[in-house]
Design a protein around this nucleic acid. Structure first.
Lengths: 226, 226
DNA sequence: TGTACATCAGTGAACGCGCGTTCACTGATGTAC
DNA sequence: TGTACATCAGTGAACGCGCGTTCACTGATGTAC
């Protein structure tokens, strides 16, 4: 192990990413390698020792973002009684929102408009999956415990697709109807958070926390976990 | 009325905006005045006869976007029985989604991540208000008809803020609880649509229309309008 | 209807800027014997 | 422990590019008398 060099290298990579995030926070999604190099006291071409180009850096940021968010969500949700899926959903909701408020630029990168010209490579799938798994786990528990949920009439095509997806995940036990409801709440959660972060909730109240708590209560109901 | 000149001018303005939209669709939010001029066969400085700068063009696009969307929503919702708030909400939902699918770039401009460095001027408030009014109108009808909704315990600060906002709008009749529920469904609607458009719903089903219909059904329930 | 003047669309050159990426290089850090 | 070589971080100059905005200008369209 060529420890010294390797440790320094890993550290520089972290510095570059941290700097990129700071830039995202001020300038938005169009980040500049030259500006990063400048801020780090490097010459612009030095960045290429660490990342093959702009897109590779973006990919690293996205992967880190999903991973960081998933970590947060998993630990916060893990602190709640496993047998109370509604509480678990609420814990997830608060975790996502808190993370989003603390990492606005990263949140926008993950859940805002796609970055023009950038196509996410396959490596990003795994960390996204971690997030999805949290939801599916919770719905699995709800299924096992027989938590009642408001029924939906799924058209056969949809029911078929969802069932086969659940099969792929090894979760045949979960009702497709329950998953449909759960996914609606899931997408809604990000909608509610994006509305707050992107400035569409202005003028309603100054007490953002209270508003979110009430909204989350509504979403737990849609998910059929109240 | 200097008709000829004025008509040509108005037409050129429309051409510039149309070209800008086409650019947004391919390149994303960072639009280039030079590229627009090029495509229109103009010299880059000519644009300044029509718009004071990039930001003014962006503002025009945003205002047009909200207006166009509001038009669509208002007409589609107007075709539904006034006395069925649930159906009205569903009509709104479908109208927003159809518009979003047909105007992806514009939708991202309005409801995606904020454009870095751009602050929306006051002129954008009015068209946004038209959208909000559609929701409030619907909730007013629901109130008048006494449509039942799932109760929420609003903390006093929130209840106070919402009540005073309703007062400002001249809608004192609407319960703050109902508005909270309605607004949750409203934000959720955009969340569900953004999820689909921004690629977070991949892998669930190919039948997007069916999925949305089911999700919308869930949202009508959150809104307490089922 | 005809002329003198004002308005305004569009030109073309120039300003100063920042960007991503390449390339041959220096010099320090690590490795093998 | 000491030397010869390989690896690799960082340099600095250069490439070709596109951008927003300004300015003094030409020439056509409109207006007033």
């Amino acid at each position: 192990m060529s420890t010294v060099r390797e440790r320094v290298r890993a550290q520089t990579i972290e510095e570059i990413k941290a700097c990129a995030l700071r830039q995202l926070a001020t300038v938005g999604t169009d980040l500049s390698l030259r500006a990063i190099a400048r801020e780090l006291g490097l010459v612009s071409s030095a960045i290429y020792r660490y990342f093959a180009g702009r897109d590779e850096l973006l990919t690293a940021l996205i992967i880190d973002g999903y991973s960081d968010l998933a970590d947060e969500v998993v630990t916060r949700e893990g602190a709640v009684d496993r047998n109370r899926p509604g509480d678990r959903f609420a814990a997830i909701g608060h975790a996502v929102r808190d993370w989003a408020l603390a990492h606005r630029a990263e949140y926008a990168l993950l859940y805002g408009s796609p970055v023009p010209g950038y196509v996410a490579p396959e490596e990003t799938i795994a960390p996204v999956m971690r997030m999805n798994t949290v939801l599916v786990d919770l719905l699995t528990t709800a299924t096992e415990r027989g938590t009642p949920f408001e029924p939906v009439a799924l058209p056969t095509s949809l029911r078929h697709d969802i069932t086969s997806m659940l099969g792929t995940l090894g979760r045949d036990g979960v009702d497709p109807e329950r998953l449909a409801r759960g996914f609606t709440a899931w997408a809604s959660l990000f909608g509610v958070i994006s509305f707050e972060l992107f400035g569409h909730s202005v003028g309603i109240t100054g007490d953002r926390d209270a508003l979110f708590a009430v909204q989350l209560d509504g979403l737990v109901r849609v998910a059929g976990l109240a």
